[in-house]
């Protein structure tokens, strides 16, 4: 299945892996140069930082939840069925992956300035410069990615297993929940964590749609941007550390979850 590299190729690939690790570790460690205990303490426990963390976690979680709800059935359909317009649908879903988030955010903002967008905002939910706007911006950026990852997860589950479930009398819903979903679990968890992390770190689209108002739409990445623009490097470092810790904990949790179900 896989070609085994020779001893030289083997050593070179390990060296490359270590170099990557050293590169990222170096970047993070270099933050220590500007680490100031007093500023760190003040920033970490400031009301404004606390708000940003809370806002980021909430928005990312809601956006991921919404994206997953839509992406799971969509990805399943793309994985299992052939239908007219399937290729077009797949291409459109790749659009948010290749287009800059700033451009996506701008598109959303422009949409809310046309008559339909205005009507929608006035009669349903107000998006521009609000929490809903943050969620929408993140949702739009991560939806394509999550469909793609979930489709890959479903592709891994052999259709034969669903066929067997059907011949054994299971309905399509039952076979989806008892056979397909559990077998795609690892891919699902990976997709969930990665899209959530991407939503958490989302900056460009959020800034366009929701702006950067302190104590209102200031998510963590936006707070980092704001502090840096004010030349508050120590504060920026503190916020970066928060983001890094949250991200790494999420990844670690995912590893644990995936590791536990590896044998089945």
């Amino acid at each position: 299945m896989s070609r085994r590299p020779g001893p030289r190729g083997f050593r070179a690939s390990i060296a490359a892996a270590l170099a990557v690790l050293a590169f990222y570790a170096g970047l993070i460690v270099s933050l220590a140069w500007f680490l100031d205990g007093e500023v760190l303490n003040r920033t970490l426990f400031s009301e404004r930082s606390f708000f940003s963390v809370q806002l980021s976690l909430m928005a990312a979680t809601v956006a991921t939840g919404l994206a997953m709800t839509l992406a799971i059935p969509a990805a399943y359909a793309l994985s299992r069925y052939d239908f007219i317009g399937k290729q077009a649908a797949e291409t459109v879903l790749e659009f948010p992956i290749i287009v800059s988030p700033a451009a996506l955010g701008a598109i959303i903002l422009i949409f809310f300035n046309n008559p339909l967008g205005e009507w929608l905002q006035e009669n349903t939910i107000y998006f521009v410069f609000t929490f809903s706007g943050i969620v929408l911006a993140q949702f739009v950026t991560i939806l394509g990615l999550s469909v793609r990852m979930l489709k890959a997860a479903f592709d891994e589950v052999p259709v034969e297993l669903e066929t067997v479930a059907r011949t054994l009398g299971a309905g399509s819903r039952h076979s989806f929940f008892t056979v397909t979903l559990p077998l795609a679990k690892n891919g699902l968890i990976a997709a969930l964590i990665l899209t959530w992390a991407k939503a958490l770190g989302e900056f460009g689209a959020t800034l366009m749609v929701a702006g950067s108002m302190a104590m209102r739409t200031e998510t963590l990445p936006i707070a980092i941007f704001m502090r840096l623009s004010n030349a508050d490097i120590e504060g920026t470092v503190a916020l970066i550390l928060i983001l890094v810790v949250i991200g790494l904990s999420a990844l670690y949790a995912a590893r644990r979850l995936l590791g536990r179900s590896a044998h089945a």
Partner: peptide, 20 residues
């Protein structure tokens, strides 16, 4: 009649066991 209701036992070459 749908395969689900035909009451046929189907055995595949590659077993198709539910590995979970």
């Amino acid at each position: 009649q749908h395969a689900r209701y035909r009451r046929v036992g189907f055995v595949f070459q590659h077993y198709a066991l539910f590995k979970h």
